[in-house]
Each structure stands twice: as C-alpha cells, then as structure tokens.
C-alpha cells in the first residue's frame, strides 16, 4: 500500500473507535464537583444536607476501603497490602534473591480505577505517580502507590 492508501486505511480504522462509556460517567462525576455551576447558585438547605450526607458517605466508603485493604482477604491474582502510607499490589512475587528495580511512572487515574483502586488525584490532576517493581526479566512484580 502506498502512503495515501495507508492513511485512508488508518482513517477507517480510527472512525470505528468510540469513546469508552466510563469517560462520560467520569465526566458527569467531575461536573458535579465543578464550582460555580448555575445549578450550584440555587443551593438551598436541602442541597447542603444532601452534600453533607454524600461527604459523610464518601468518608465512610474510603475508611471501609482502607480497612478492607488492611484486614480483608487478598484476591487470588492481585494481592494488596498496606505498607506505611503506601499500598503495594503484588502481581507476581519476586524470587528470593532476585534484584528488583523500582521505576517511577505516572499513570492515568482511570487506569488504576480499572483495577479497582480508587485514588484521590494529587493537585487536581488526573494522573498519579506509582512505583513499578520490575524483576530481572523485565516483568513487573508489583505496583506501589502512595495513598
């Protein structure tokens, strides 16, 4: 195929790509938190009550999650344990004398959410820094992230 044909083929392939549904759900959640919304100007006492109840619910949810990670049973393929203020997800335990390298990368919060890990993004960004523990064979042994 020449360049024009390749570009045409790529265009057709890309035209079939749709936005994942969770992006809209995430956007709607973010909209709710957006300050200065016209809807926010109509805040009344009932609204304040609902907001306080939601905040309380979130606090309870986050606390339960932390307690779960601390005490709950680990899933069979993805173990999580709290170490200080970090959570380590063990993908494949390293060998006894294996040297593990730590590579710090930044990943989208959505990627962590797809693993069931809900984090609070730092400084309003949508990405978080994680340390990937890489074994001698280049395979990730675990992921560590600050909570």
């Amino acid at each position: 195929m020449n360049l024009d044909e390749q570009l045409e083929a790529l265009k057709h392939a890309e035209n079939r790509v749709a936005v994942p549904a969770h992006v809209e759900a995430r956007l709607l959640r973010a909209l709710e938190e957006l300050p200065g919304q016209p809807a926010d100007r109509r805040v009344n006492r009932a609204g304040v009550f609902v907001a306080v109840a939601l905040a309380a619910g979130i606090v309870v949810g986050v606390t339960s999650t932390v307690v779960y990670f601390q005490r709950g049973p680990a899933p069979p393929t993805l173990a999580a344990e709290t170490v200080g203020e970090s959570v380590v997800l063990v993908l494949e335990p390293p060998g006894v004398e294996e040297t593990v390298r730590v590579v710090r990368i930044r990943v989208a919060r959505s990627a962590l959410e797809s693993l069931g890990i809900h984090t609070v993004a730092s400084q309003g960004t949508d990405s978080v820094e994680v340390d990937v523990l890489v074994g001698e064979d280049g395979v990730a042994r675990g992921v560590r992230l600050a909570m």
């Binding site: 936005v19 994942p20 992006v23 995430r26 956007l27 973010a30 990943v107 989208a108 959505s110 990627a111 949508d126 990405s127």
Partner: peptide, 8 residues
Amino acid sequence: AAAEDIVQ
C-alpha cells in the same frame, strides 16, 4: 488513557 483525560 491520555485521550480519555483530554476528552474530560
């Protein structure tokens, strides 16, 4: 993942 963030 970056594209999703940019859409948002």
